[in-house]
């Protein structure tokens, strides 16, 4: 294999190779517990929320932007969904209104601010991240919200066949978004904007509309993640989703998404999210404390992206 072939191979399957490598390492370190069917499913469940936020983040990075507010959108949608249910709203309506719609509206606020101010999404979402988190505290009085119907928890944590519901949900969304990125004009236009914003503008692509849509998608994904997170913990925590932007960004970048925009694939991002979930699960299996986990996680992110750069230089 010559250099360019290696680079092409790496672009497609590099992330997958890293996942296999990490699984191999943990299996060797913890042979009794790690590589068992129950644990593999558990990894899937643990990764589902990361994958969801990463899918949204992927779009933001694809247009050479970023979304730092995924964690706080997760928290606020979780709280609002829970509050609505406690207030007696039907869980389905609560999920649609307080989770999904709410997430989309918050995403639209991000997108509209980016369009209106012309500032980089980094600055806008840095600000809205704080705003949304603050609102979460105000709405919840800084207390967790619980006491919502058990059917809600059951529906979103149970199994469909043998597949856990969160895994199914994340996979379905990934497939839909994969379709959007590869088969629709919207998707191609977003790649075009990421590749060369100016040229896309001169080609007649509506930059502002697409920016708005990108942030709505990101908000939607975070909103869904917020609902899942609430179901999983059995209570809506105002502190939920802290640092999740780090994991979302890391998943997208480990998945080969170019920080400069215009390059990246949904399947690789899903694998990127799985890598984050696997590392976290594996470290738990090895009984490593949470504090140390953050250190290891950060180091692995840097290592994974460095490897990607080194191998992918032929691009």
């Amino acid at each position: 294999m010559n250099r360019t072939q290696l680079a092409t191979f790496w672009e497609r399957y590099g992330t997958f190779c890293i996942l296999v490598l990490i699984i191999a390492v943990f299996s060797a370190l913890s042979p009794a517990y790690f590589f068992r069917p129950e644990n593999i499913l558990q990894i899937g469940v643990q990764s589902a929320i990361t994958v969801l936020t990463a899918l949204g983040e992927f779009f933001a990075i694809l247009i050479a932007g970023i979304d730092l507010s995924v964690g706080s959108i997760l928290a606020i949608t979780g709280i609002v969904t829970a509050k609505l249910m406690v207030a007696g709203l039907h869980p389905v309506l609560a999920v649609l209104g307080g989770g999904v719609l709410m997430g989309m509206v918050l995403g639209a606020i991000n997108g509209a601010l980016v369009n209106f101010t012309g500032l980089h999404p980094f600055i806008i979402t840095l600000g809205t991240n704080a705003i949304f988190r603050g609102l979460t505290f105000i709405i919840s009085g800084a207390n967790p919200v619980f006491g919502f119907p058990y059917e809600f928890v059951l529906a979103l944590t149970g199994n469909v066949g043998f597949v856990p519901a969160p895994v199914l949900l994340a996979l379905c969304l990934a497939v839909v978004l994969w379709f959007v990125t590869t088969k629709t004009r919207l998707g191609r236009n977003i790649y075009a904007m990421g590749g060369n914003r100016e040229a896309a503008y001169f080609s007649g692509i509506d930059i502002k509309l697409h920016t708005l849509v990108v942030f709505i998608i990101s908000g939607f994904c975070s909103g869904l993640a917020g609902v899942l997170s609430t179901a999983r913990t059995g209570a809506a925590e105002p502190l939920a989703g802290q640092n999740f932007e780090t994991f979302a960004i890391a998943s997208a970048i480990i998945g080969g998404t170019s920080f400069f925009g215009g390059r990246g694939r949904i399947p690789s991002v899903v694998v990127g999210g799985l890598i984050i979930g696997t590392i976290s699960n594996g470290l738990n299996m090895l009984h490593i404390q949470t504090f140390y986990q953050l250190v290891v996680m950060g180091s692995l992110i840097i290592a994974a992206v460095s490897i990607d750069r080194l191998v992918g230089q032929g691009r």
């Binding site: 790649y191 990421g194 060369n196 040229a199 896309a200 503008y201 001169f202 215009g262």
Partner: peptide
Amino acid sequence: RQTGFMPNF
């Protein structure tokens, strides 16, 4: 290069 083509396409 600036306003013509998408280099990733």
